[in-house]
């Protein structure tokens, strides 16, 4: 069981960030608690290799995320505590940029293309890792990524062209 603790300790911060970026800082701790519970229950399946263990945990998180989006998640005491810490104003990190326009464009992509972009640019996954997580071939991920960037380029160019001159200067 120490292997589970080791894997969770090594990845819980990244898992929390992954969930926060998709569910917000309010709901992410609840789902993280579920991810950990599932990891414990499936401890026999935990890969020995640390990188594979990381991918295994993200695979669980991906499933928990899908479930969380279907219904209300339970509130646990520890999740509440973690949430309270996350919400302390002094402890909340700023988003990487004002980023609204870019995020809106990402959100407007087809779901599979958007997720590849998020996993590469928000979570730092390689295309090979994404292929493993999404259970598709690396060539599929590569084509999705290329297509997503092509669309984003078009959308961002359009958004820059249509904003006011002052906003355009800020975007540029």
């Amino acid at each position: 069981m120490t292997e589970v603790v080791r894997a969770l300790d090594a990845n819980s911060a990244d898992l929390l960030a992954y969930l926060e970026r998709r569910l917000g800082v309010h709901d992410a701790p609840d789902v993280l608690s579920e991810v950990m519970t599932v990891a414990w229950r499936r401890a026999a399946d935990l890969p020995a290799d640390p990188e594979q263990a990381r991918m295994w945990l993200f695979g669980i998180a991906k499933g928990a995320l899908a479930n969380a989006r279907r219904g209300e998640v339970r509130r646990a005491n520890l999740a509440d505590r973690l949430r309270a810490i996350s919400f302390e104003r002094a402890n909340v990190s700023a988003p990487a940029d004002t980023g609204l326009t870019t995020r809106e464009c990402i959100d407007a992509l087809p779901a599979q293309l958007a997720e590849v972009i998020r996993l590469v640019h928000w979570e730092g996954f390689s295309l090979a890792e994404i292929a493993q997580l999404e259970q598709v071939s690396p060539s599929t991920v590569r084509s999705r990524y290329a297509r997503a960037k092509e669309l984003l380029r078009e959308m961002l160019d359009e958004s820059i062209a249509t904003v006011t001159p002052l906003r355009r200067a800020a975007v540029l």
């Binding site: 926060e20 970026r21 990190s93 928000w122």
Partner: peptide, 14 residues
């Protein structure tokens, strides 16, 4: 574009 995408990550707890 990569810089823009890297910078678009939403808020996370510190």
């Amino acid at each position: 574009l990569d810089t823009q995408l890297d910078a678009s990550s939403p808020l996370t707890s510190a």
